[in-house]
């Protein structure tokens, strides 16, 4: 059996918004084995993004434990979490979230600035990552000079450049046209199948979800369905 990359046990997340308590996740258990490609689906407010944020260590559960690669995230301080994220997590945002004043190359290089890699090694890694997403010829372009699909490909390059253990993608095709969305899903599939990257993706789009190995459905903070690829 493959090693577990993500292990979620009894996780509850309670928010207080505008004076009201909102139960985002209710006693969720989940195992994510190495090399898995999970699509988290469900209606808005079902807790998909909350689950993704907990796995990324950018939010903390109200109850329960989240462990990634054997590290229980609740035991880490804020600064330890920041450093841990840099080493273990690649995050892809719906709105790409590239830094507008930096070029594609500089955006992809950002996570590597927190490592001990020398400039020449960083250059090699950045070029490899951009080459992998087919943007080796757009390195010096600023985000504004790229199409939405190209921006998301730069964001994927940024997510994989530090060779993370898990890639978390929040609606990666949500802001893209169908063709660009297809290209992005194709890249994610390659990362999962060829490079055995573990991917957890939040999506509303059944077509995008179909690229995943299994689909998890959440409703009102509860996992209601776990469907494997036929």
């Amino acid at each position: 059996m493959a090693e577990l990359v993500g292990k979620i046990r009894g996780v509850t997340k309670l928010y207080t918004r505008d004076g009201f308590d909102v139960l985002a996740l209710d006693n969720v258990d989940l195992d994510i084995p190495e090399g898995d490609f999970v699509a988290l689906m469900g209606p808005s407010g079902s807790g998909k993004s909350t689950l993704l944020n907990l796995l990324a260590g950018i939010d903390r559960p109200t109850n329960g434990d989240v462990a990634v690669m054997g590290t229980t995230l609740g035991n880490l301080s804020e600064s330890q979490l920041a450093s841990w994220r840099n080493r273990h997590v690649g995050y892809i945002f719906q709105s790409f979230n590239l830094i507008p004043v930096l070029t594609a190359y500089e955006n992809v290089e950002l996570p590597l600035l927190l490592t001990d890699l020398k400039k020449a090694d960083r250059k090699r890694s950045v070029e490899t990552a951009l080459d992998l997403v087919g943007l080796a010829d757009r390195m010096d372009h600023r985000p504004k000079q790229l199409s939405g699909g190209q921006e998301q490909r730069v964001a994927i390059a940024r997510a994989i450049v530090a060779d993370p253990d898990i890639i978390l993608a929040d609606e990666p095709t949500g802001n893209l046209d169908a063709r660009s969305g297809e290209e992005i899903m194709s890249i994610l599939t390659t990362l999962n199948e060829k490079l055995t990257k573990t991917i957890v993706m939040v999506t509303h789009d059944p077509h995008a979800a179909a690229f995943a190995k299994r689909q998890l459905h959440l409703e009102k903070g509860v996992l209601v369905e776990n469907v494997g690829k036929s």
Binding site: I58, A82, S83, N97, I99, L110
Partner: peptide
């Protein structure tokens, strides 16, 4: 603000 959030996700510390 969103950019700051992104940088934090990438691993940049509060400091």
């Amino acid at each position: 603000t969103q950019e700051i959030g992104t940088l934090r996700v990438l691993g940049f510390s509060r400091t």
